[in-house]
Nucleic acid binder design. Structure first.
Length: 564
RNA sequence: UACCCCGUGGUGUAACGGUAACACAGGAGAUUUUGGAUCUCUUAUUCAAGGUUCGAAUCCUUGCGGGGUAGCCA
């Protein structure tokens, strides 16, 4: 064994696993699995599980591994498209299942054999009741269930019936195979759960080979055991399934492994929804532009938004792992995104709401280039030349005709520094007939170049970014904001309310910005910080070479907010 | 109103019977050619009541609050 770290503090799962390893259980091996059903796209909540399961396999390397297993036991909901996107997302997050790629459908034959074994042991029976009858006889949360009239069929009869179910003799819903446990159990999952159902449906991998399919509750523990999984980690809603999980592990003979299941709280994030059903609704109703819309909490969405794998991993580490049904602030995610991007994103000047500035004492027709660092956080990123001339654009937010208290930027008669250029003084405000400001006429001071602060003059408090008008590129920017206006849209909407009423109408604003010409070479899928504005990501789908389109990943923190 | 799980600053977590701490958020300052970043300081916490103990966030009891569970979904 090679590790281990100073061991900061372990969450309850890791503590448990550490104890297992210390006790030499499973020969000191830790084998986990990430088991998505390929029926949709992965979201940030799945990232928590991925970071846990794959993270564990890294922490216990080399005595460890994490399987990627597709839980494809319901052919009516699953598609290869989802299989592919899930694999892409896991890889993008920075994890690798190596050769350990599995499908529950690979075990259909073995699973069938185990079911026959249960029948022979008198632990499973074929039930002819209708779905309605089964539901009614299951009882309620407060009342016990009642036995099916078919509960005591002989093993031989059950075996025959089950074989005929497989052979396709019956229609959907005509018969099921049930585990024979306890119809009076306070745990509904133990009231003779259905373990096989008839589905004449085409499976994305097994085709038409099967017309009976195992249920999750049956397939999952046995798949875990077949793969030698040691720790089966899932979210809290499966807590009540644990006794069934253990029942199966204990009831089936000849299993190569003895995994156990533990549960942790799923991730909830403010200002978004996480359930597949609700995300699907957003896509289907055209409320967002697809699963990879940068406003979506899907992995493909946040990837396209410009969030980084490292940021997401750091976030998943920061949120911890407990059984408390917590609500994490979106804030925290954004913090980690900024932290990562601050170190790596190249800086560029972009003016989102341009006002023209004319430097009246700057020679007409002259263009010079000023040298600016690509990333002050990392000298190795080098420098670039930014054109500067008589006509510039600055951002409308950086000028106030009648400034509020505390405003440090340009005002009539006032002075600001143009970053890495020189200071300018606003001499005149030009307006159109409607009174809109269309131009600022300013003078520049050559003595203030290179950050020089002339003595004897009032201190220039503001430094603003700018672009040279003639050389500026017109670039499309997609300014994304929170998808919802309230922290918990589903909670607020209530049981029968509609969460879409809380959709943020301003979650996407598209603008054409004036950006320094170097931006034209931006590669799709690259990160930038538009100085003083935010982090932006060249959209990998819609950008073209020489014509990038940017998604706003996250705004910069703004220490100055105009109070109204 | 059955059973199971969970309650620590605003939020997320740590403290494993022995000084309640960390991060985010908030506030103040320093610094800065980004009102960013960085650095310093700071506000604010054990659901309640009993009990056990020299000592309880931690163990016990009760109460209160939150979440989950009645698919031939996963």
């Amino acid at each position: 064994m090679s590790e281990t770290a100073p061991a900061a503090s372990l969450d309850f799962i890791r503590e448990m696993i550490a104890a297992d390893v210390a006790a030499g259980r499973n020969g000191g091996q830790v084998i986990t699995r990430f088991p998505p059903e390929p029926n949709g796209y992965l979201h940030i909540g799945h990232a928590k599980s991925i970071c846990l399961n794959f993270g564990l396999s890294q922490e216990y390397a080399p005595h460890s591994r994490c399987h990627l297993r597709f839980d494809d036991t319901n052919p009516t909901k699953e598609e290869v498209e989802y299989v592919e996107s899930i694999m892409e997302d896991v890889k993008w997050l920075g994890f690798d299942w190596g050769t350990h790629l599995f499908y529950a459908s690979d075990y259909f034959e073995k699973l069938y054999g185990f079911a026959v074994q249960l029948i022979e042991k008198g632990l499973a029976y074929v039930d002819d009741q209708t779905p309605e009858q089964i539901r009614e006889s299951r009882g309620t949360l407060t009342a016990p269930g009642t036995a099916s009239p078919y509960r005591d069929r002989s093993a031989a009869e059950n075996k025959d019936l089950f074989a005929r179910m497989r052979a396709g003799e019956f229609k959907n819903g005509e018969k099921v195979l049930r585990a024979k446990i306890d119809m009076a159990s306070p745990n509904m999952n133990l009231r003779d759960p259905v373990i096989y159902r008839i589905m004449h449906a085409h499976h994305h991998r097994t085709g038409d080979a099967w017309c009976i399919y195992p249920m999750y509750d049956y397939a999952h523990p046995l798949s875990d055991a077949l793969e030698g999984i040691t720790h089966s980690l899932c979210t809290l809603e499966f807590e009540h399934h644990r006794p069934l999980y253990e029942w199966l592990i204990n009831s089936v003979d000849g299993l190569p492994g003895a995994p156990y299941q533990r549960e942790f709280a799923r991730l909830n994030l403010t200002y978004t929804v996480m359930s597949k059903r609700k995300l699907l609704r957003l896509v289907k109703d055209g409320l967002v532009h697809g699963w990879d819309d940068p406003r979506m909490p899907t992995i493909s969405g946040i990837r396209r938004r410009g969030y980084t794998p490292a940021a997401i991993r750091a976030f998943c580490k920061a949120i911890g792992l407990t059984k408390y049904p917590s609500l994490t602030e979106l804030n925290l995610l954004e913090h980690h995104v900024r932290e990562d991007l601050n170190k790596h994103a190249l800086r560029v000047y972009a003016v989102l709401k341009p006002i023209k500035v004319v430097l009246t004492n700057y020679p007409e027709g002259q263009v010079e280039h000023v040298e600016v660092p690509n990333n002050p956080e990392n000298e190795a990123d080098g420098k670039r030349q930014v054109p500067l001339s008589r006509e510039l654009y600055i951002d409308a937010d950086d000028f106030m005709e009648t400034p509020v208290q505390g405003f440090h930027r340009l005002v009539p008669g006032g002075e600001v520094r143009l970053k890495y250029a020189f200071c300018i003084i606003c001499q005149e405000v030009i307006k159109d007939a409607q009174g809109n400001i269309i131009e600022l006429r300013c003078t520049y001071d050559d003595a203030t170049r290179h950050g020089v602060k002339p003595v004897g003059r009032p201190k220039v408090k503001g430094t603003i970014h700018w672009v040279s008008a003639a050389q500026a590129a017109d670039i499309e920017l997609r300014l994304y904001d929170k998808l919802f206006t309230v922290e918990q849209p589903d909670e607020q909407a209530g049981e029968d309310g509609d969460f879409t009423q809380f959709l943020n109408p301003g979650s996407l604003e598209t603008v054409i910005a004036k950006i320094e010409p170097s931006i034209l070479t931006a590669k799709p899928g690259s990160h930038y910080q538009f100085e003083r504005v935010g982090y932006f990501f060249a959209d990998p789908k819609d950008s073209q070479l020489g014509k990038p389109i940017f998604n706003r990943t996250v705004q910069l923190k703004d220490g100055f907010v105009v109070k109204k």
